[in-house]
Write a protein that binds this DNA or RNA. Structure first.
Lengths: 134, 134
DNA sequence: TTGTTATATGCCATTTTTTGCATACAAACA
DNA sequence: TGTTTGTATGCAAAAAATGGCATATAACAA
């Protein structure tokens, strides 16, 4: 009981909802800096939001060097239903913009892994272009 | 955007979630005093919760004499998806107890309408028995 | 060791939410 | 009219959430 409400409370915040949306729509494992760039929100805010979502058992985390990769916790049956529902429910514009920025940011990955930290938005397009040329 | 978050915020509270659960599970139009008895929560708390849920466009209200009947707002496509999801998602014990008390309370209706106000829990069973005998 | 990078967290001020009580309102009835 | 009844709301205290900054931690690199 406590748990279901914790889950719904974890969803009841714009930042957290935008984060969850990115996991659901991208279907990816994501690290903190990728989320920071996609959301254009301070690192500490993303980190705090992730902690709350994780404490509600909606995410799992795995450390890899200095990077921490988060992932939807599909190990809970109810979570899967929730994610399926949200996949269609969250269709608003702000979410789409996040998704676009995340897709851009993921172009900088190498072998499915994040290899750079937080990138100022002004540099992102240049870096993508550079990488495309190389 | 604002709206989706408002909806999720409306769900992020135990009282409000228990109320929404009763509407979803019972499939009924319900008045305030029936909810008060089913939830065993003060009238003002139920009334305030209903206002918040209604402001999130999840409920509609209709006045009938001194009684006010609330109903799920299925006029919004996204709401229907939400209610379908919640119907399965909200399965915890506290919700079941509410549902049982509501079913008892609805036995006092006459012609699908509520005809009594808030009933002390100690009196409810007696009144049901009386009504059954009559 | 020292420095750097990615991430997390403690703290504080501010804002928002919740809770409880009292009371207001509105409709029915005497 | 006055009274009762079902419901809503204003207000203030308490509790909780939020936002921002600084800093801590942990892992890697030189």
């Amino acid at each position: 009981m406590e748990t279901k409400i914790n889950v719904l409370r974890a969803l009841a915040d714009e930042t957290r909802l935008r984060i969850i949306n990115l996991f659901i729509k991208s279907g990816q494992v994501l690290c903190v800096c990728e989320l920071v760039d996609a959301l254009k929100i301070p690192q500490y805010a993303v980190s705090k939001a992730l902690t709350i979502i994780k404490n509600a058992d909606l995410l799992t985390a795995e450390k890899e060097g200095t990077w921490v990769y988060y992932e939807l916790n599909k190990g809970i049956v109810h979570n899967k239903n929730l994610f399926n529902f949200l996949k269609n429910y969250l269709s608003d514009e702000i979410f789409l913009e996040d998704e676009t920025r995340l897709n851009d940011r993921l172009l900088l990955r190498e072998g499915d892994k994040c290899v750079v930290g937080i990138i100022p938005e002004s540099d992102l397009l240049k870096m993508i272009k550079q990488k495309a040329e190389a």
